[in-house]
Design a protein around this nucleic acid. Structure first.
Length: 576
DNA sequence: GCCGTTTTCGGCCCGACTGTTTTCAGTCG
């Protein structure tokens, strides 16, 4: 069985969970958590690194011991230390840690006092009112546990960022109108541009006598108030989205925004840097002794620890601090850099508007060019085009281009990659296009070797410009295909073709770490809307955030090129 | 378990809220 990075992540997290229940040295536990997070964010395959004889202790947070464990895992497929822990502590206990309100201490107490090892046993113990008898537990805690268990049956998944966005915007507007409130901003993973958010973290600056906390918990969309203090409150909205509000004085804006944006790992690293310089860093500012030396702005927070400003999308403690220290931070691609969009549909296939309407909407969104890329005939549910209908559309686009002003349409197709890796339309007509976008739309279940071979073969077609939504995942409903993405990326480089970051909220694929890998390999990415309607160009901002999370600069993104600069790049993929 | 312009030991980020407590432990972010 091939060992992939997520397998290592899971093993280290499991070790950390079990060590927590055993009440081990918290810093030892943190070492495993850090290692898990490091591997999670690694843009290369650990097994490959081991096979290449790379020194894993070069990685920050990996020492001799963890390097040995990683080597054991990738070579044998298991970890003897984890197996030893599982003999001492029932592995099912780690499931209990996921119950809100239960941490390692309480899980351990439940296990020792009541022999509770599983979620079922916990539910029974709560119903039979046995939990309140344990020292440190009471009736309220018992009720909370039972409630949490019942809520977990209807487990709340993470929200795609675009779904959370309108709720965030509405809350921000509401809070801004509360007396005494100065600024309201959404922080947390939302601000870091993650593809999904587990909750919304909102920061408000307000006068101390502002009723902002009370007004927050009284917001009409609040279904439940989980906690309510003077500077912090947590609620659940009717759609199950959790929202945290933190209120601070305006003078602490920068420090609080930095703290509340995270990530946690990034914050810890920054605080440690501050500590080395004799500074205390918290959400109120940076302090040398009692003296406050920074915190008005985020820039001042970074400057105080000797760093340039780091964009929120980079704050995952995955190399951004080292890059900042070395002066090597990327100048991230920005919304205004996008010149065009290379993937869109009209009602000729499964879109909802005419080509003319789509062109007008793209122009209104500030774009200079738009590729029309209908589905091909194999995708019958989307009314995919055969050669005859495609030929007709090409004539329509030629005619429109003679008439349109300020926007140029490119002739494309989103051609199906068939199960054997061939493309769904003949080379003859594909050769008459400006670009060929290709994608997998069925048989997502092929084994890794076959799926990878299928895509590599498709890339070797005479006409192949962009691999669209390369992993095929749909957030919350379909897992990514099992495909060797590093190999696909390397092949794209050899073949001279491009990969897509699809900006549809449920796709956002390539994901950040693969985008970063592509950048490192020198493969250009297209940030495309995959628009099916005139409103979908708004989604480009989410695709762009994903690109920024992949450390992409303007030069790394294909569709930041002017049309003049783009044409030869497209042409080079259409003639080999 | 990691790490080192305090380098092989002794540190390791910081604070708010809740519930069960009479001063704080546990959990969370």
């Amino acid at each position: 069985m091939p060992i992939l990075n997520p397998d290592i992540v899971q093993i280290f997290d499991e070790i950390a969970d079990l060590l927590e229940i055993e009440d081990a040295n918290p810093f030892r536990i943190r070492a495993y958590r850090n290692a898990a997070r490091l591997v999670q964010g690694l843009s290369s395959d650990v097994k490959t690194m081991v096979e290449a004889g790379e020194d894993l202790t070069e990685l920050p947070g990996i020492g001799d011991d963890l390097a040995k464990k990683i080597i054991e895992i990738v070579t044998t497929g298991h970890c003897s230390f984890l197996e030893k822990l599982e003999k001492q502590t029932p592995p099912a206990l780690t499931e209990l840690l996921k119950v809100p309100g239960l941490g390692p201490k309480r899980v351990k107490a439940l296990w020792h006092e009541l022999d509770v090892e599983t979620v079922d046993q916990l539910t029974r113990a709560a119903r039979e009112k046995r939990i309140r008898g344990i020292p440190g537990f009471g009736e309220k805690t018992e009720a909370r546990i039972l409630e949490a268990l019942q809520a977990q049956i209807a487990a709340v998944p993470r929200f795609p960022i675009a779904i959370a966005a309108p709720y965030a915007a509405a809350l921000v507007r509401y809070l801004q109108n509360v007396p005494g409130v100065q600024r309201v901003v959404v922080a947390g993973s939302f601000r870091r541009g993650r593809d999904t958010v587990g909750d919304l973290d909102i920061l408000a600056t307000a006068a101390t006598d502002s009723p902002v906390m009370a007004r927050f918990t009284a917001y009409e969309d609040v279904a439940e108030v989980l906690s309510h203090g003077t500077t912090r409150a947590t609620v659940i909205l009717r759609n199950k989205l959790q929202v945290d509000l933190r209120a601070v004085d305006e003078s602490a804006y920068g420090a609080a925004l930095h703290y509340f944006t995270g990530s946690k790992a990034h914050n810890i690293a920054i605080r440690r840097m501050g500590q080395d310089m004799g500074l205390k860093v918290n959400e109120y500012g940076l302090f040398r002794g009692k003296e406050r030396i920074a915190g008005d702005t985020e820039e001042s927070v970074y400057a105080a620890v000797g760093l340039p400003y780091i964009a929120p999308e980079l704050r995952e403690n995955c190399g951004e601090i080292q890059a900042a220290r070395a002066g090597h931070l990327p100048k991230l691609v920005a919304m205004g850099d996008l010149r065009g969009d290379l993937h869109a549909h009209s009602k000729a296939s499964d879109g909802h508007y005419s080509v003319r309407d789509m062109a007008a909407a793209a122009k209104a969104a500030g774009l200079e060019y738009l590729a029309i890329t209908e589905h091909s005939r194999h995708l019958t549910v989307a009314h995919g085009l055969d050669p005859v209908r495609l030929r007709r559309q090409l004539d329509e686009i030629d005619a429109l281009n003679r008439e349109l002003d300020g926007i140029t349409l490119l002739k494309g197709i989103e051609v199906d990659i068939l199960e054997d890796g061939s493309l769904d339309l003949p080379d003859g007509i594909l050769g008459d296009l400006d670009l060929v976008v290709a994608a997998v739309h069925y048989r997502f279940d092929l084994p890794r070797s076959k799926q990878t071979a299928r895509i590599l073969k498709a890339m070797d077609s005479p006409h192949f410009t962009i691999l669209a939504h390369p992993s095929g995942r749909l957030i919350g409903s379909r897992e990514a295909m099992d495909v060797d993405m590093p190999r696909v990326i390397r092949h794209a480089r050899e073949r001279g073709c491009f990969l897509e970051i699809n900006a549809q909220p449920e796709r956002l694929d390539l994901v950040d770490i693969h985008a970063r890998m592509a950048k490192e390999e020198g493969v250009l990415l297209a940030v495309n809307s995959d628009a099916h309607s005139i409103h979908d160009f708004d989604n480009l901002r989410f695709g762009l955030q994903q690109a920024r999370r992949g450390w992409l600069e303007k030069k790394d993104v294909l569709n930041t090129r002017t049309l003049k600069a783009l044409r030869p790049l497209l042409a080079a993929t259409m003639s080999s």
